[in-house]
């Protein structure tokens, strides 16, 4: 008879994270929007889309079941404002933002800073996700050569060749259309800029960081098998003057449901549609930790919720016209 021998270091460790059923994103705001925006009007438009029946539908739950829903808002303190000193301080804008959401009946549980996705004490989430990208292969990708990538860009197909360049045999290359890899009969070709700028001063694109944000909310990111983002509570009466002094995710309500959720719902301005389409192009090419993806499916199943394995199928939107 053989003994049973195990070593804990031999097993893959993937910590679990607590899950709400739905994470509702109550709009998206740039710091410079905070001054001119009528926040009461802003949240009043969003609130009806986050009511019980709609959330039950998003969660895949019967309406009469108890819901576990957390709300969040991502503030863009990353792009915009070339002069950081011109930005309003957290103390100047956050209390009013939270109060307006409360008045509209959609209190915010978690407030996140976009810069917190780029720089965090435990390491950059943006860089972590870059390591998870597995490019959608065009026909002809047989493994014999490394995948062809255009630095800083990600596409869902094959690009047109550069027009006007000279071929080896002397002829000019004529235009040929780009092709979507999974296209059927016709293509919807997308080419998404992930970042630009010189190495070391990389400026991540809005679409890329929004994709990181969705992954964080879905609780499928791990670093060395451990969870990556812990919400921290802050003293709202003593907010710092500097945004960078705040944690990446602030817990701004008392004992809210978990930040991560089986599914996400984002209610936002329709002007973000192209960005969100780009987000879906990126998320379609993220190879998330299979164990983390499965943990969510298992946990949801215990609550009678069917959760798809594909990350992008866990995301819902409401896009509101102006």
């Amino acid at each position: 008879m053989d003994a049973i021998y195990t070593e804990s270091s031999a097993a893959e460790h993937t910590s679990g994270v607590p899950f709400a059923q739905v994470s509702v994103e109550l709009g998206h705001l740039y710091l410079e929007d905070l001054g001119p925006t009528d926040l009461d009007g802003f949240f009043a438009r969003i609130a009806p889309w986050a009511d019980r029946p709609r959330l039950a539908s998003v969660a895949g739950l019967p309406t009469d079941r108890r819901q576990r829903v957390s709300t969040c808002l991502l503030l863009d303190d990353y792009s915009g404002y070339t002069d950081p000193t011109a930005r309003p301080s957290p103390a100047a804008v956050l209390p009013e933002l939270l109060a307006a959401a409360m008045r509209a009946g959609v209190p915010i549980d978690y407030l996140a800073r976009e810069s917190g996705l780029v720089q965090a004490p435990s390491g950059s989430l943006a860089e972590l996700v870059e390591g998870l990208l597995v490019a959608d292969p065009p026909f002809g990708a047989d493994g014999s050569r490394p995948p062809v990538t255009e630095t800083g860009w990600l596409t869902n197909g094959q690009r047109s060749p550069a027009v006007g360049t000279r071929q080896a045999m002397g002829g000019q290359i004529v235009w040929t259309p780009p092709v979507e890899n999974a296209g059927y009969q016709h293509s919807v070709f997308l080419d998404v800029e992930l970042w630009n700028g010189p190495e070391g001063k990389r400026q991540w694109s809005c679409a890329y960081l929004a994709a990181v944000w969705q992954l964080a909310r879905l609780g499928v990111l791990r670093r060395r098998g451990r969870g990556v983002l812990a919400a921290e509570s802050v003293d709202l009466d003593n907010l710092p003057d500097d945004w960078a002094a705040l944690p990446a995710v602030l817990m701004v309500s008392r004992t809210p449901p978990p930040f991560c959720a089986y599914r996400t719902l984002s209610v936002m301005d329709a002007r973000f549609l192209p960005v969100e389409n780009a987000v879906r192009t990126i998320l379609s090419q993220v190879a998330a930790d299979p164990t983390a993806v499965r943990q969510a499916v298992r946990r949801a199943a215990r609550e009678g919720i069917t959760l798809p394995m594909e990350i992008i199928d866990r995301i819902s939107y409401v896009l509101l016209g102006p």
Binding site: Y5, E7, S9, A10, A11, E12, H13, T14, G123, L128, G131, L132, V134, A135, D136, P137, P138, F139, G140, A141, D142, G143, P147, N181, L221, R222, R223, R224, G225, A287, D289, T291
Partner: peptide
Amino acid sequence: APAATVRLTSRPLARGVSTDVVEGVHCR
């Protein structure tokens, strides 16, 4: 890859296994 842990076994022989690296293909 930074996401997962390297698996290490010390008995009966030291052995380390990396995290999985994924690559896409579409070909014959």
